[in-house]
Amino acid sequence: MEMKPYRLELIRPSTVLPLIHDVRQEFDLGPFEPTMWRTNDVPLIAAILNRDNKIHWLSTTYLAERALESTSLTGDTVRSYGYSLVLWLNYLSSKNLLLELVTEADLQIFRNTVWNRNSGFSEPRQKAYRSTVIARVETARRFHEWGQSNGKFFSPLGMGGPMRYTLPPEQRLPKIVKATELKNIIGIAPEPYNLAFKWAVTAGLRRFELCGLSKGQVESLTYGDLNEIGEMDVYRKGGRLITTYFPNALLHDTIWYIQTSRPTPKKGMEDVLFLSPNGYKLQREEISRVFRRCADKFGIGAVLHHLRHTFAVTTLEILQRKANAGGSVNPLKTLQILMGHRSLESTQIYLRAMDVYSDEVAEALSFLYGAASVA
């Protein structure tokens, strides 16, 4: 496959920024210098390199500033910005367009190209989500606005007004994993992946949140009746500490794992809950791969993130029941908090999904929570 003109390099600052002194001697960084020096305190920074492995300083400095502004614990925000900018720069290169001369019309064509996934430009296996397309286009626009307003480079695009999106409305509903599918996947998944899957589907945790669970915090929790719901504070997306709920039966399973089969941790991994066989913290990508392999064995067309969808829909059903029974609870607002959504609009789609998957929700409630689902 032909190498693209630009690629993204993700960097853990603590491992490479001591070398910045050498970089400063070779390059005249000018206004970039203060930004680059302060990035040693963020979880991730991103550099964009060309075919000759030379840094594209304009985009890399923009990404460094975004890293400083981000509250992400894992660097996912700057990673997303980086992928979007690489896509944009490679598109400009493929069309022989100069960064300083692109216009609103060029950005509109780029938007359509990403939406339709034109052959040769990008090769994903399925059509892009509308929200993803908008994020890619908005990143390109903000980069040009930054360049124009800060005097980094002249840009007609950077002086434009807000863009009018005309993409088709999103038609995809959140997908839930049926109770029988959950039983099959969890039944063949090795430890501790089976436990990670259970935490994902009963607490709505993202991959990085699963990987960040603490052994000490779990051990400090009070045992309760197996049919009751426990709670634990977890750092969620954006660095927010949010109370997370789970069946006590899952806590018992997790303590049993710690006491009987958790591998001996490597140095620095002592308080990590989920460890790989060699004693290191589970990686997000590996959790997804194991889930995919288990699902494929049963011909189940689900991915790991669908466990989070399942949590959302089943939890909304529980909250709706409580509200209908006279409880003082706002189901959508409560679910928004539990999901860690900043916007209520992101949560509302689960209302429609709950109606579509009503039968599956009832089965999933019984499998995940048992008697606790109607408490």
Rank of each mutant, 00 (worst) to 15 (best):
F246A: 12
P247L: 06
A249H: 11
A249C: 03
A249E: 15
L250V: 11
D253W: 13
T254A: 03
W256C: 04
Y257S: 05
Q259R: 14
S261Y: 00
P265R: 04
K267Y: 14
K267W: 13
E270P: 05
V272Y: 03
L273A: 05
F274H: 07
S276W: 02
S276M: 08
S276A: 15
P277H: 04
P277C: 01
P277G: 04
P277M: 02
N278H: 12
G279N: 13
G279K: 11
K281W: 02
L282A: 07
E286K: 11
I287G: 05
I287M: 15
I287C: 09
I287D: 12
R289Q: 15
R289M: 08
V290K: 05
F291E: 09
R292V: 05
R292A: 14
C294G: 03
C294W: 00
A295S: 10
D296T: 09
K297C: 10
K297Q: 10
F298N: 02
G301T: 02
A302I: 10
A302W: 07
V303K: 13
V303N: 15
L304W: 12
H305D: 03
H305F: 10
H305L: 05
H306F: 06
H309T: 06
H309L: 10
F311Y: 15
A312I: 10
T314L: 05
T315A: 10
T315Y: 03
L316W: 06
E317G: 01
I318M: 14
I318G: 01
L319P: 11
L319Q: 13
Q320G: 15
R321E: 15
A323P: 00
A323W: 07
G326Y: 11
G327Y: 09
G327I: 04
V329R: 12
V329F: 12
L332S: 05
L332I: 12
K333L: 14
M339W: 00
G340K: 04
H341T: 07
H341G: 07
R342I: 06
S343R: 06
L344Y: 01
S346R: 01
S346E: 06
Q348Y: 02
I349S: 09
R352H: 11
M354I: 01
Y357H: 14
Y357S: 10
Y357P: 00
S358M: 07
S358C: 04
S358D: 13
S358E: 14
D359H: 09
E360W: 10
E360N: 12
V361G: 02
A362N: 07
A362D: 12
A362T: 11
E363L: 13
S366E: 14
F367G: 01
F367I: 05
L368P: 05
